[in-house]
Design a protein around this nucleic acid. Sequence first.
DNA 1: GCAAAAGTGTTTATCGTACACCCATGC
DNA 2: GCATGGGTGTACGATAAACACTTTTGC
Lengths: 228, 228
Amino acid sequence: MLDQYKQQHPYLVALDSIIFGFDGESLKVLLVKRGVEEKTWSLMGGWLQPDESLEQAASRILFDLTGLTNVYLEQLHAFGNPDRDPIVRTVSVAYFSLVKIADYESKISGTFQAQWFSIYDLPPLLFDHGDMVDLAIKRLRYKAAQHPIGFELLNEKFTIPQLKKLYDAIYNTEFDKRNFSRKILSTNLLIKLAEKQKGFSKRGAFYYKVDTEKYHLVADSFLNFIPG
Amino acid sequence: MLDQYKQQHPYLVALDSIIFGFDGESLKVLLVKRGVEEKTWSLMGGWLQPDESLEQAASRILFDLTGLTNVYLEQLHAFGNPDRDPIVRTVSVAYFSLVKIADYESKISGTFQAQWFSIYDLPPLLFDHGDMVDLAIKRLRYKAAQHPIGFELLNEKFTIPQLKKLYDAIYNTEFDKRNFSRKILSTNLLIKLAEKQKGFSKRGAFYYKVDTEKYHLVADSFLNFIPG
DNA sequence: GCAAAAGTGTTTATCGTACACCCATGC
DNA sequence: GCATGGGTGTACGATAAACACTTTTGC
């Protein structure tokens, strides 16, 4: 190894995940109690291993907790204040992910003590994890306003009223249902199914699914997706 | 130190900066030739020191090259593929910054071999620095479309035609000057000065400056800043 | 038949876009 | 007086926003 490398200080590199879910009513974050600080809620996290990329590591850690693969995962920010972890200097790369809460519930292992918390009612969090969650919420709002990522939080089949409730929850507001459905449908990203939702309302709402092909085509472009 | 920390592998943590400048005609990136690979152009970078935050380190490294402080600096992305640096595993946190090219030119030290390159005519770059630049350009376009950050690339006093040329360069297009100036002025972020630019055109264009107070107020909100 | 949620249409204001002419000045 | 870039106004179409009634069906 060259001298200029040898003189440098190495640091531990961690990954922490802000895992968002939607239970039909409010936007939630999955928190755990783990290792060092068993009394404090924290984000799910872990260490970077020698053979992994950052994204692979975040993905592995997410799988360890939820059993889920193929979930929406995006790098949020790297946090590296010298004293953020009081025991040893650690740089943490935070990722946020959007999961279908129903899938999670059926697959969870009992290894971790984990619980969903409303984003408007969070407990005190370990280290700078509170900052991470705040930033993740901001980023989610920023991104969902222009990219159709909300679907990632719903089941494959969903109704327009469910989608509206999700966006109401994300933005902590109430969108007009007529304008909302017009705008969403005008993207042509949704395919109407023959089936209706049963049991929730008397009339029943039609299910829709995402047109995956079109979705991938526009995933990177600006859509001005949301009213308001 | 607790056992769970001791078992972990530490890594070197680097910072790399995509430094954007505007020379009045085209958008440029500042590249250097440095240390290990003296034949290859690379981004300006350095190592994280024990007492610094990531942002402080990026700021210090930027100062070492340009002599500039108080420049626009934003974290771009953390890059950590296992083989991105073939000599030793390194996680690099990339920052992008917007500098006033005239300030830079007056302050540059001779320590580094540095050169501005048009973003449309870049040489081959070290490691994954090409990816970093690509992502930074994407982010700059994304951000400048909704936040008034373009000013960071111009002198304190600038004309509307200069500002339009900058946005033309960022988006590699040609905006309509009438719509452009209407939209920019409608934000009320610019203060018209009495002074006119001399020597460039016969008539001379009025100088403007940013209303710093208003600028800080809206720095975080969506402005739909740009035509097209 | 009534309560509860689903679904749909119209009007108005605002904004985006396309487009062309006059102005001020240096030479 | 003419060439060069600076500065402005208007008309049209598209999109956003506000707003209310009808439909379906389980009970």
